[in-house]
Amino acid sequence: MALSPVPSTTPDWAFEREHWRRGYFRVAGVDEAGRGAWAGPVTVAAVILPGLARDYPFRDSKQLSAAQREVLAAEVRAVAVSWAVEHAWPEEIDRLNILGATHAAALRALARLDPAPQALVTDYLKLRVDVPLSAPPKADALSYSVAAASLLAKTERDRVMAELDGQHPGYGFAGHKGYGAPAHRAALRELGVSEVHRRSFAPVRALLGAPAPLFGDAE
């Protein structure tokens, strides 16, 4: 099947080069998928690309079709110096809040990289780490390393949501991926809350009749 043209918005190496100039050559890109969903995990990927400043076809996963993402994610895995993907599941999200759980999953992914990164570029994730960190907004559209991470995070989370669709039929997880689509809201009203829903998120919490969590509205 022929793929559609890759979008023209092209990342570059500007953020990585700032670290390279300081002698930090193993720069990991970090991105997540699923922070705003009502169900399923938030998924974080970390990727170290070869520091050759070459052009890649990697783009922000939100700009691409599912077929394009799968092709490019396979290329990321093939060319990366190191990569890792980690999930934070609803229990951890409800316990830590969504931002805390995202940070925890990011740190787990980074700990699995071998060799370890010397610096990071993230999509506005201001992680507490002992290496230099750049965390610009929209980094998945600006940095090759973060775009590569976005591809791995999105494709892996979509795979997980397809599995959850089979385990919890009727919610439509394979289609809306756990986000707040009208069909998801209707399924929640009809079927109730499943074990993979985030109970701290307002629409789910409302169905449970539960009070707001101590850390505030997690949605």
Rank of each mutant, 00 (worst) to 15 (best):
Y124F: 15
E163Q: 15
L99T: 12
L99F: 12
S8E: 15
R17Q: 15
P115L: 09
R198W: 01
G40E: 00
A181C: 05
G172P: 03
R22W: 02
R21E: 15
E92H: 05
E92L: 14
A84Q: 12
Y24C: 13
R59E: 07
A101D: 01
A88L: 11
G216K: 02
A210T: 09
E86K: 00
R128C: 12
L127V: 00
V47P: 05
P7N: 07
Q118P: 08
G166V: 10
D217R: 10
V44K: 13
L127S: 02
G170N: 09
R35V: 04
F173H: 03
V27C: 08
R108T: 02
A111C: 10
Y179W: 09
V204E: 02
A80L: 08
L214N: 04
S145N: 05
A202L: 14
K138S: 12
R95V: 01
S8C: 12
P11G: 05
H103E: 14
G36E: 06
W20C: 11
R189T: 12
A111L: 11
G51D: 15
V131S: 03
K62T: 02
K126P: 09
E32F: 06
P7R: 09
R189N: 14
D114E: 15
S150W: 10
R21L: 13
E32G: 04
G216W: 12
A33N: 00
D60A: 02
P41Y: 06
R205N: 04
